[in-house]
């Protein structure tokens, strides 16, 4: 792969600063879904984006937001393409992204255990910390929550239900 030029770096930074439409506390860069920006010709740019989940409906809003930001930066021709491999993983969420999720009241995903088989759900026995009171005594209410990427849990200590960004 060719090294990013200065312009590509700048456009990458701009596209990466777009907030996630579903979780506006995170930028696309922190979420880890921005794969690269290629300047094909002056004023003509391709942005490579990867979905969190195959059916994630937010990808269309993300694409529109990126196009708008780059248009505003003087790039007339922007095409956003979706790439599937390598597949996105919650390990692609940056440390800053994880901190912001917790602050927003969503328990961040746990890092994948290197010893567990890749791709499988993380064993539920690992504790998930309550983002409100910090207790590790929490229980699973449902494996699927407000969006495909989250599970619904409840804190046994403070009784608050909360979303958990589940490991993928």
């Amino acid at each position: 792969m060719v090294t990013e030029t200065l312009l590509e770096k700048e456009l990458h930074r701009l596209a990466g600063s777009v907030p996630d439409p579903e979780l506006p506390v995170l930028t696309l860069d922190e979420l880890g879904v921005l794969r690269g920006v290629d300047v094909l010709a002056p004023g003509k740019v391709t942005v490579r984006l990867t979905p969190t989940y195959t059916g994630c409906p937010a990808i269309e809003a993300m694409s529109a937001d990126i196009e708008r930001v780059l248009h505003d930066h003087g790039i007339p021709e922007v095409s956003v393409v979706t790439v599937l491999s390598p597949a996105w993983s919650t390990d692609d969420i940056s440390a800053e992204g994880r901190r912001k999720l917790a602050e927003f009241g969503i328990a961040p995903p746990r890092p994948h255990d290197a010893t567990s088989p890749a791709g499988g759900p993380v064993p539920l026995t690992l504790s998930v910390r309550c983002p409100h009171c910090g207790s590790t005594d929490t229980e699973l209410l449902s494996r699927f929550s407000s969006t495909a990427c989250k599970a619904l849990r409840r804190c046994v200590t403070c009784r608050e239900p909360f979303d958990h960004f589940k490991e993928l």
């Binding site: 195959t54 599937l84 491999s85 996105w88 993983s89 499988g120 759900p121 494996r143 699927f144």
Partner: peptide, 16 residues
Amino acid sequence: GLAAKAVKEVAYHQDH
């Protein structure tokens, strides 16, 4: 490419 991505989703479907 699709299968590598989707297999992680389906693991949750099977678990459910």
